[in-house]
Design a protein around this nucleic acid. Structure first.
Lengths: 207, 207
DNA sequence: CTGCAAGTTTGCAGTATACGCACTAATGTG
DNA sequence: CACATTAGTGCGTATACTGCAAACTTGCAG
């Protein structure tokens, strides 16, 4: 009985997930009402009807509540990457994977806009956000290293390209969210990836 | 007498600078000895011979001591950018500015390697580091917006390109520092900028 | 060289995050 | 039903950081 990690009896697990959601929703609501810094763990605990101590069984920090569900996104990207055809060019594969995520994002525009506001308004959350993106970069760079060959461990390209892809995603997201998600996110993503794909040398100042 | 910010009487100012250095050096030494988390503000204050409260007159957080002098670097880059010839392509100008910074970095390899170790080992410092890089990105994007035209406020290119440049810098720095700075940093930077300049479409898997 | 104004350092009290630990309660299992 | 596991709780504590006011230092004008 060493196995069975994650969900023990599916009933317990369900309750846990419900509590988790409850904390998350209570927290987000309070963050919007009083701001991130104006909300204490105690406030969240009270609103979610749990003991303050319990909060930390679900989230390692207050910042992480505002940024929940990032890990799953990562899995989505990496999965999409690994599923891409073997003969596809790396940048093309990345473009496809991020486009898929972008399409997915549009389905929960509402949620993302709210979170974006919190990130914008609170440096500590922004910092944690970037830190999580580093995790993505790491994972993507791993996949790229597989593709580009691991003979040279000093090859900068995996990290460079992963970093560029995330920069494209960030720029697209920002563009999308600054007008509350009224434009088409996948269009932005495609555009950003294409600019980087064609080469930054080509970007010129207007005459 | 509204002016004269920065240095009041040059003697006061000198003392302040000395205290600042003292704190910085004491802190870095302790961070290496006991690790970042294993060092308290009280420890640093004791080692620097100041009161704990005084620490916060010099640095807003413990993380910032480990990352001192980042603001000045930023000014160096932005200055180099603005000094670049008007007819130079944006990416070329960025390449030049970052190469200059890279050359500068090599002169204090020692210092940077130590700091890099702390960043690597301590998530909170890594987070703050990224946050500061966002400041750079912002400033660089501003300059790019000037160059590319401000007619379309929704133009993603300034942020995209600034983000790409910083990704190039990060990848180069990482490559350089993971072997303790024994390779040539400017070479890495030039290479990364050239890859992005030529276009990521061109990067192919080995057959 | 004296006294005043401005700036710097300090101590103290307070708030909030986060963790370790032990204890209780719930719950699924044999 | 007894038992093992694990969620949830309460308590104590370490630490970062802030506000405030008192003490001290320094530069300067008279």
């Amino acid at each position: 009985m060493i196995e069975k990690m994650g969900q023990s009896s599916s009933h317990r697990e369900l309750k846990k997930q419900r509590t988790r959601r409850s904390i998350e929703q209570a927290a987000l609501r309070l963050f919007e009402e009083r701001g991130f810094d104006g909300t204490t763990i105690d406030d969240i605990a009270a609103a979610a009807e749990i003991a303050p101590r319990t909060f930390f069984h679900y989230f390692p920090s207050k910042e992480d509540v505002a940024l929940a569900d990032y890990a799953t996104r990562l899995e989505q990207i990496v999965a999409a990457l690994k599923a891409s055809p073997d003969d596809q060019a790396p940048w093309r594969a990345l473009r496809g994977a991020f486009l898929a995520v972008g399409a997915d994002y549009e389905t929960e525009r509402e949620h993302l806009v709210r979170r974006f506001r919190i990130i914008q308004a609170t440096p500590s959350v922004a910092a944690r956000n970037l830190q999580l993106q580093t995790t993505w970069e790491e994972a993507i760079a791993e996949v790229l290293a597989d593709w580009l060959g691991r003979d040279d461990p000093g090859d900068v390209r995996p990290r460079l390209i992963a970093g560029a892809a995330l920069a494209a995603m960030r720029a697209s997201l920002r563009r999308w969210l600054t007008n509350d998600g009224r434009s088409r996110l996948p269009d932005h993503i495609a555009h950003c990836f294409d600019v980087l794909g064609a080469g930054l040398r080509q970007v010129a100042r207007p005459e």
